[in-house]
C-alpha cells in the first residue's frame, strides 16, 4: 500500500501523470482462428490474456481455465502485476493458450495471438485473435 502511495506521489510530482489502482479495466474477447480449432486442445487448457507496457513488461495477466471460444474476458485490478499503472499507459495485449498452465514460458505446440492495436485502461470490445501455433 505504502509502495503504491509512494509511486503515486513520485509520479505526480515528476510528470503530473495519474495512476490507476482500483479502476483498471480492459474487456474484450479472445477468438480462436477457425483454422486452428480442430488442432486446439479441448481439455486441461489454460488461456492467458497478458497486457504489457511500452517497455514490454507484463503489467497484468488474466487467466481462464478450460476456456470456451470465443472467450470473453474482463481484466481488473485483481489481475495487475504492478502496484499501479499510469492511466494513459499504452498497453499491448496478447493471448497464450496451452496445456501446461504456465504464462510467459512458451513451448512448442502452444497457441498464441495478439490484439491488432494498443489499448488503454477502460478499453472495451478488444478483440484478440489466437492464430498461431508455436
Amino acid at each position: 500500500m505504502s509502495r503504491a502511495l509512494a509511486l503515486t506521489l513520485a509520479c505526480g510530482l515528476l510528470s503530473g501523470c495519474e495512476l490507476l489502482t482500483g479502476d483498471f479495466r480492459l474487456t474484450g474477447t479472445v477468438e480462436l482462428a477457425p483454422a486452428l480449432s480442430e488442432r486446439a486442445p479441448k481439455t486441461n487448457t489454460m488461456l492467458f490474456v497478458v497486457a504489457k507496457n511500452a517497455g514490454g513488461v507484463p503489467v497484468a495477466v488474466h487467466s481462464i481455465i478450460n476456456p470456451e471460444f470465443p472467450a470473453a474476458f474482463e481484466m481488473d485490478q485483481h489481475d495487475l502485476l504492478v502496484p499501479a499503472l499510469r492511466r494513459q499507459e499504452p498497453l499491448s495485449l496478447h493471448a497464450e493458450f496451452n496445456t501446461h498452465g504456465a504464462a510467459g514460458a512458451p513451448r512448442s505446440g502452444d497457441f498464441a495471438g495478439r490484439a491488432a492495436s494498443e489499448v488503454r485502461s477502460g478499453a472495451r470490445g478488444i478483440r484478440v485473435l489466437v492464430d498461431r501455433q508455436l
Binding site: 488474466h62 487467466s63 481455465i65 472467450a71
Partner: peptide, 8 residues
C-alpha cells in the same frame, strides 16, 4: 498467484 476463472 493471482485470481483466474474457469469455464465449467
Amino acid at each position: 498467484i493471482g485470481r483466474a476463472e474457469i469455464s465449467a
